[in-house]
């Protein structure tokens, strides 16, 4: 039982990071029908920019409170990622908006390589240690189950951000404009909505979330690297599809489900398959679940709700 709860907790932590990244995929898909494969790289840029700020600041002003350092890291990572996200849209995708669907997709893959290579040139090939500024000492809320303040922080921040995004999309003028643009950006334009502005805002918001996800990811695993965005990017894309791409709550549910499936998969696949499969099949297990979901619900767990996708 303790092991089960511990696995659930592990899944929640990785799942909430996947969910944050998945939101970026799903928002862009909802509005443009474009799968922005460069999105995972924004997570990487977020983590590395934050790391750069933190190490510069801590060497310039020694003895700063860890929370100040972390806030400073976030305060630079988020705007930088937002700017990068905006530039990708403005330079890479906007001209291709009316091109056949494959063109922006290939461009997205190209942008992903470009960002990775740039990061490799700036930060080098080696793995960097990301300082764990929030305590990682295990606490025992109950016997056999351990949780660290960092893990609690990760889950709380992820859920707060998801809540804030839902409020933004459903309650504000910008959100209404986003929903209108998602339905049909030409008609929305005729109704006086600045579609270009709304699309840019979507990219900016998604990139900001990716930056935060990057800081959370790097903090949890104490690692930052120019290629670190690839795997979580792929997983988050999977999560977005699992939940129903284009659907905001779907991305959150998909992320959490994927995190839990991976965790339980690694933990129990051996028992479930009577010793036939082992933990080297944990990724396959996650994709088997994805396959099964898509066979029975081709548009994902929550489906692509066309009317209010954003």
């Amino acid at each position: 039982m303790e092991t089960f709860l511990q696995q659930m907790l592990n899944g929640l932590v990785s799942g909430s990071i996947y969910a944050l990244v998945a939101l970026g995929y799903t928002m862009v898909y909802g509005i443009l029908g474009l799968i922005n494969f460069a999105h995972g790289e924004l997570l990487m840029i977020g983590a590395l920019v934050a790391l750069q700020t933190i190490s510069l600041l801590s060497s310039a002003v020694p003895g700063l409170h860890p929370a100040v350092l972390l806030l400073a890291g976030v305060a630079t990572a988020v705007p930088v990622c937002m700017a990068v996200g905006y530039l990708i849209e403005r330079i890479g995708y906007r001209r291709l908006r009316n091109a056949p669907r494959l063109a922006p997709l290939i461009t997205a893959i190209g942008v992903s390589f470009l960002l990775q290579t740039l990061a490799m040139i700036i930060w080098g090939r080696e793995f960097h240690v990301f300082p764990q500024l929030i305590d990682t000492a295990p606490m025992q809320p109950m016997a056999g189950v351990v949780v660290s303040p960092l893990q609690i922080f990760t889950i709380v921040v992820a859920f707060t951000l998801m809540g804030a995004l839902m409020l933004l999309v459903n309650k504000t003028r910008l959100g209404r404009a986003m929903r209108a643009t998602a339905e049909n950006h030409r008609v929305a334009g005729l109704m006086g909505i600045n579609a270009n502005g709304v699309i840019a805002a979507t990219f900016i918001i998604g990139s900001g979330l990716a930056a935060l996800a990057g800081v959370l990811f790097a903090s949890n695993y104490a690692i930052a690297h120019y290629a670190m965005g690839f795997t979580p990017g792929l997983k988050a894309f999977t999560a977005a599809v699992l939940g129903g791409i284009g659907n905001l709550p779907g991305a959150m549910v998909g992320g959490l489900v994927l995190g839990l499936v991976e965790s339980f998969g690694a933990g129990y696949i051996e028992h479930l398959s009577f010793g036939f499969l082992n933990s080297s099949y944990q990724d396959i297990f996650a994709f088997m679940i994805l396959g099964a979901v898509l066979i029975f619900r081709p548009s994902g767990l929550l489906g692509e709700r066309v009317a209010d996708r954003a």
Binding site: G11, S280, Q282
Partner: peptide
């Protein structure tokens, strides 16, 4: 695998 960063699940097991 050699790209993994999260080992919590197998370590818990």
């Amino acid at each position: 695998n050699d790209k993994a960063t999260d080992f919590m699940a197998i370590l818990t097991k």
